[in-house]
Amino acid sequence: MSRTVIAYVGLGSNLDEPEEQVERAFAGLDGIDGARLVAVSPLYRSAPMGPAGQPDYINAVAALETTLEPEALLDALQAIEQHHQRVRTIRWGPRTLDLDLLLYDDATIATEHLSVPHPGLPERAFVLYPLADIAPGLHLPDGTPLMQLLRRCPPEGLERLDSAR
């Protein structure tokens, strides 16, 4: 029997009705075999990190209970991206859906295809604030409290959206 862990997934979209893309992605996450959606953050609007001239992003974070191994979970996330017609052409360019495995239990993972905790997590307000909404007492695998990261990363340019959820 596989062990159940909590994994946190960052969601982002800035193309083709981004709010709806993220909302549909929540349902896709809940449909992964071997995983169950246990929490979703409110949606946030943020300025793009990448090339200029692209629309703002809609971001959120979801928590999954899963028995999947990290690489299998990553494969499932990428399948959801493909279902949303994700095209990988420009680094940090516009996209219909981006799903990032932020944290996988208390694991530190460094493989050719996967880095957990996600390398950008400590300085990305659009990830930290939604993550804090659903897991305020969280500590990273190295013991760093999430709240400590929030104090170092102001929410400049981040707008929490009202949600019907």
Rank of each mutant, 00 (worst) to 15 (best):
L114S: 09
L140C: 03
G120A: 04
A62L: 06
D16N: 14
G120S: 05
A39W: 10
V5M: 08
Q54C: 08
P136Q: 10
E81V: 07
A135C: 09
T144G: 07
S115W: 09
E20C: 11
A72Q: 14
T67W: 11
D133E: 15
G12A: 07
G12M: 08
H139G: 01
E23G: 01
T96S: 13
V40L: 07
D142I: 14
R124F: 03
A107W: 13
T66R: 06
A39Y: 11
F126I: 04
P48V: 12
N59I: 00
I134K: 02
L150H: 05
T89Q: 15
G31I: 09
L131E: 07
L128C: 08
E65Q: 14
P117L: 02
L99C: 03
L43C: 11
G12H: 08
L77V: 00
L150S: 04
D133F: 00
R24V: 01
L101H: 06
I32E: 12
P155V: 00
R165H: 15
P141D: 03
Y129G: 01
R36D: 04
T67R: 13
T67C: 13
G28C: 06
L74V: 00
G10W: 00
L15G: 05
T66K: 06
P55W: 12
R86A: 08
D98Q: 09
P42F: 03
R91E: 13
A132L: 04
G53E: 14
L43M: 14
H139R: 14
A164K: 06
V22N: 12
W92Q: 12
D30A: 12
L11D: 06
I90L: 10
V87C: 04
I134H: 09
G34H: 09
P117C: 04
L74S: 01
D133T: 02
R91A: 14
Q85C: 09
G93E: 11
D30E: 10
Y44E: 03
G157W: 09
E19T: 10
S2Y: 13
H83T: 15
E71A: 13
P141Q: 01
A25G: 06
P154G: 01
I32H: 07
A62R: 05
